[in-house]
Amino acid sequence: MQTRQAATGTVSIRDLRKSFSVGRKSIEAVSGLNLEVGRGEIFGLLGPNGAGKTTTLRMLATLVPIDSGEAMVAGIDVRRKPKEVRRRIGYVGQLGGADLPATGRENLLLQGRLYGASGSDASRRASELIDLLALGEFADRPARTYSGGQRRRLEVALGIMHKPEILFLDEPSTGLDPQNRANLWDQLRGLNEAGTTIFLTTHYLEEADALANRVAIMDHGKVVAEDTLLELKRRVGGGTFVVRTALPASELEDLRAALANLAPISGAWLDGEALRLRTSDGRAAVAAVAAVAQLLETRDVPLAALSLSEASLDDVFLQETGRSLRDAGQNNAETVR
């Protein structure tokens, strides 16, 4: 993926905070966030469920009031001029927002008119987007008859109907099958190449990897790492490898603890039915492989596979938080969004 440096901020956030009351408790969903997103970027806010990504996005989209801090979108203060911000942004929420009894074309026309386009301009733009996002076959059918992928494409079209300076996408590919997800990613890359800045949240590592130029990883309301994908992965350092054994999942924790105590290993985590091991120094990888093989032999554990792996965003998350991104969401309360 091509790397672009952040220019002067299309989105600029300083010490952004938001708390919610849950019963008598106040829970801070976003805790002093600082971010800068440049024009033309695809910026990914990655984190487990409950990390505060959606709350951040909803504050930027003027849906949720900001408790404190500063947020500028397209050069406009979100707290002071929310209506001005709304004119300049597109927003596609997790729920989508397509009006299901109406046809795709009717949805687009109304959206265009609400943003001030004349009837003929809205009609022209709707046809343009129907072509661009391959909605032609079903544009005049009620949206309730669309498949998940078709509906998501319509929702993206709604988000860019008025040619916003920046498009906010909240978990854009949730619920889509792999084919529709790949298709949507292609469409989003196309939009970005045509000049739309994209700010998306996701809890899918693959989505951030596939789409984003830069990523901020969020956990418990804070950014724990932020950089280009390449730099984030480089930052992990050392060597990463994956061990698969024939042991049942219930016995893996014991093995993980034993592997973590081996001298060349700097960290060991369960990753589904596999174990991810890391050495702090790339040169220690060979020694680590030998030590792992010896330990497995001593314990009479059959080795199914052992492979060297490129550092992933999950490794970055592991390094920063001590938890796997794949597991973290289950432990975070999604009640705070």
Binding site: A61, T62, L63, K83, R86, R87, I89, Y91, G93, Q94, L95, G96, G97, A98, D99, L100, Q111, L114, Y115, G116, L158
Partner: peptide, 14 residues
């Protein structure tokens, strides 16, 4: 509210 229509319209300048 459940289908996000109100959210979309709320983000519009309407």
């Amino acid at each position: 509210v459940d289908t996000g229509v109100l959210e979309r319209l709320t983000v519009s300048p309407a």
